[in-house]
Amino acid sequence: MKRDYAKVVPDAAMEDDCRQLVRLAVREDLERSIDWTTACLIANDQRGACQVVPRQTGICAGLVTVDWILDETEADLKAEPLARDGDTLHAGQPILRLEGSARDLLTCERLILNVLCKLCGVASLTGRYVQEIAGTSAALYDTRKTTPGWRRLEKYAVGCGGGRNHRTGLFDGFLIKDNHLALAGEAAKGLSPRAATELARQWAEGRTEMTAAPEIVEIEVDCLEQLAEVLPAGPDIVLLDNFTLEQLRSAVQLRDQQAPTVELEASGNVTIDTIREIAATGVERISSGALTHQAVWVDLGLDWQQQP
């Protein structure tokens, strides 16, 4: 069975990230004061209800965070999801209902919308990329080009859009790049790609004192000569950096001949216009930072409902 990086799911780590972001967002909005406009105009005992409604199509992501947000802000509100993360968004079809203190609704609305708009945007862009490579053997992966503090949430949204998660951080996989090779070795004289791969494989398989090292070994190469050199060292994945389409096809052929169990990952110059051609070369993986750093927020609105 081929190894892959862990999928980001709603767990304790993701919840903790969300709560830390909520605390920062509350400080941005309220500092150590109050919502003066709401306190001035809205009675303390007034109740209210509203729905979060998409103004455009897309893919839903982030509903799992709403209860964490309400709990962390101590809002007197009840959330009723009307959709699930991963569902298609339809303009005018509500995805969430909130009911409770009118004051808390007004104070929390922007925070809730900001989180949902951002994560739905990541999921929606990912979904467009995934559609482009449908029917090919390639899978789409995200990268570490994420908003600081938002990584798990953004990677979760990639999963909602049908993409897969590359390593979450530096802690859960070896990914050897040019800078590692240049600075490694005795007296920083550098290591060859093959030597670096062999050393990482020893760590990954527990053949050193570092028995808790992650299992996956991936190395980045920038030419076919480097690919031929590292394949015998047994990496799990070889990242083909900025290869042309012709080079990608040659890389797949070389891999099939020398080490058919090694997966190839194309990265660099991946856009919505080029990804289909890249997938057609036969690589198993395509990674793109665009899924997170170029995603545009989905337009979600908050529509008030009349209380009975």
Rank of each mutant, 00 (worst) to 15 (best):
G58V: 11
L170A: 04
L98V: 03
L98N: 01
V64L: 02
G206Y: 07
E80C: 12
R164C: 15
L98G: 01
D273P: 00
D104I: 10
V262Y: 01
A184R: 00
K189C: 13
L105P: 04
L240V: 03
L181F: 03
R27E: 12
L21Y: 07
A61C: 10
A123W: 04
Q306H: 14
E99H: 08
E225V: 07
S124M: 09
A182E: 10
V230T: 00
E154S: 08
L170K: 06
L63Y: 02
D29E: 14
I278A: 00
V230R: 05
R152K: 12
V217W: 01
Q258R: 14
V66R: 00
T146I: 06
E205C: 14
R255Y: 05
I133D: 03
E246G: 09
R19E: 14
A39L: 13
L105G: 06
A187M: 11
P260Y: 04
R97W: 13
F174Y: 13
P94R: 06
T168C: 13
T281V: 09
T65P: 01
V270S: 00
C223I: 08
F174G: 04
M210S: 15
Q93N: 12
V298W: 00
C120V: 01
E284N: 09
N114W: 00
A157V: 07
L96T: 05
H166M: 03
R144D: 02
T281Y: 10
